[in-house]
Simulated assay, not measured.
Amino acid sequence: MTTANTAYDPHKHALLLADYCLGVQPGHRVLVQTTTLALPLVEALHRLLLERGATPLLRLEYPEQTNDFQRLASDALLDAAEPVLLAEVESIDSSLRIETPRAPVSGLDPLRAARNRKALAPVARARALRRWSLTLYPTEFGAQAAQMTPAEYGAFVSSAMFLDFSDPVAKWAEVRELQATLIERLARAREVRIVGKDTDITMNIEGRTWVNSDGKRNMPSGEVFISPVETSANGQILFDIPTIYAGASVQGVRLTFQDGRVTQASAEEGEDALLAALDIDGGARILGELGIGSNAGIQAPSRNILFDEKIGGTVHLALGNGYPETGGTNVSALHWDLIKDLRGGGQILLDGEVFQDGGKFV
């Protein structure tokens, strides 16, 4: 049952994160990473974790701390991860990262950002071995990027997470059931083909396992995903939903794949960031994920990957690191989801049979 009030409520958000996404139990050590922009949510979450008998580890940065580090750090510091970071992640039971959307910063060197991401890859891999979740706190810039007022954006975030329902967990159970029916069909397929404007790409998923993303890792969620066979992607694709990645505005990305690797890449905006990402390491030009969005509650892009990749009627491909639980073997410091909207006349075909047409499941 939905409530009349759709205003964003940090306490209700914190409850969903602690109990549903992280499954916090007494004695758990929980790492929370975000910026000071998310303080209302951090305060609510900190209190809840203590009430649950858990040990909160809060790691708060000022909003531009990462940008300043990548801009000002010496080469030696940029290319070496602090050992304490890895030791801390290895000591925890679960982790939560809270995105706080903020404006792109001009003058940043995408190559330095890529080097920093590569240095932190061992920390990211250690975090992935434990229970983790990713969410977003609605900021003023997030509202501007989504072309909404702060109040409208707060309501948008709440609705996407089902916080406007009296029982959000029950709504996520409905999402899980819907996606289970999609996976029943997808699991019988060997080849996936995506066609649309400036797009015709195929990939093999034989022997791989689809995952039902029901909000426990990403909040919000609403997608099914898999890691394609690493050498199988062939064709070209235009990603037409703009986004912000590593502090840069990126849109109009065009990629060509041959035997699993990106051989040509361009972007209408943010091409420097794209090319730097592709050169992070040897695995960055290989697909780590194919995802199909199913969240009907998210219809308009907000220039945020966490939300936009879940839009019902879209498909996304991630460059870089794959998911071992799906059978993926690609290893990279990069994992960047790029999104294509199929609602205007695209298709997903399974072994030549139409699975989705114009954003609607057949």
Rank of each mutant, 00 (worst) to 15 (best):
A4S: 13
A7C: 04
P10K: 14
Y20W: 11
C21M: 14
H28T: 00
Q33E: 15
R47F: 14
T55W: 12
L57F: 11
R59H: 14
T66P: 00
L72I: 03
D79C: 11
V84F: 05
L86C: 01
I92N: 06
S106Q: 13
S106I: 03
D109W: 06
A113D: 05
N116K: 11
L134W: 14
G142N: 10
A155K: 13
F162M: 08
A173Y: 07
R176F: 08
I183H: 10
G196Q: 07
K197D: 15
T199Q: 08
T202Y: 04
I205R: 02
W210P: 01
K216M: 13
E223M: 07
S227A: 14
V229T: 09
N234T: 15
Q236W: 08
F239V: 08
P242K: 10
P242N: 12
V262T: 09
Q264H: 15
S266L: 02
E269Q: 14
L274S: 01
A276M: 05
I280G: 01
E289G: 08
L290N: 03
G291M: 07
I292P: 05
A300K: 14
L306A: 10
F307Y: 14
D308M: 06
G312I: 03
L319M: 13
G322R: 10
S332G: 04
L334I: 01
H335K: 10
I339Y: 08
G344V: 03
L349N: 02
F355N: 03
G358M: 05
G359A: 01
